Simulated scan of single mutants.
Amino acid sequence: MARDDEGDRLERGRRLAELHMGEGTVDRWRSVSPDLEEMTSAFAFADLWGRPGLSRRDRSIVAMAITATLRAHTQLGWHVRGALGAGVTPDEVREVLIAVSGLAGFPAAWSALETAEPILAEAEAAPGA
Rank of each mutant, 00 (worst) to 15 (best):
M1D: 04
A2E: 09
R3L: 13
E6M: 13
D8Q: 11
L10Q: 13
L10P: 10
E11Y: 08
R12I: 06
G13K: 02
G13D: 02
G13H: 03
R15M: 09
R15C: 06
R15E: 09
L16R: 15
L16K: 15
L19T: 04
L19Q: 07
L19I: 00
H20M: 11
M21E: 02
G22I: 11
E23S: 12
T25H: 12
T25P: 03
V26R: 02
V26M: 06
D27M: 12
R28I: 04
W29T: 03
S31T: 02
S31D: 08
S31P: 02
V32Y: 04
S33T: 11
S33P: 10
S33F: 09
S33L: 07
S33K: 09
S33C: 12
P34L: 02
D35M: 01
D35K: 10
L36M: 09
L36R: 08
E38P: 02
T40M: 15
T40D: 03
S41E: 06
A42L: 02
A42D: 02
A42W: 01
A44W: 01
F45R: 09
F45N: 08
A46T: 03
D47Q: 15
W49G: 07
W49Y: 13
W49C: 08
W49H: 11
G50E: 06
P52M: 09
P52F: 08
G53N: 08
G53A: 10
G53L: 06
L54V: 00
L54F: 04
L54A: 04
L54R: 03
S55G: 08
S55E: 04
R57V: 10
R57D: 07
D58P: 03
D58S: 14
R59S: 05
S60L: 01
I61P: 02
I61G: 01
I61N: 03
V62T: 10
A63H: 10
A65S: 07
I66R: 01
A68S: 12
L70G: 12
R71I: 01
R71D: 04
A72W: 10
A72C: 09
H73K: 15
Q75F: 06
Q75Y: 11
L76N: 11
W78H: 15
W78F: 12
H79I: 05
R81E: 05
G82E: 01
A83K: 10
G87F: 06
T89I: 14
P90Y: 05
E92Q: 06
E92F: 01
E92R: 12
E92G: 02
E92S: 03
V93D: 01
R94F: 10
E95S: 13
E95F: 13
E95V: 13
L97M: 00
L97F: 00
A99T: 04
A99Y: 00
A99P: 01
V100I: 03
V100Q: 05
L103A: 15
L103W: 14
L103G: 14
G105W: 04
F106K: 01
F106P: 00
P107S: 03
A109P: 11
W110S: 11
E114H: 08
E114Y: 06
T115N: 12
T115W: 13
A116R: 05
A116Y: 04
E117G: 00
P118C: 11
P118L: 05
A121D: 15
A121E: 14
E122F: 14
A123S: 15
A123E: 12
A123G: 14
E124S: 15
A126V: 02
A126H: 04
A126K: 10
P127D: 02
G128R: 12
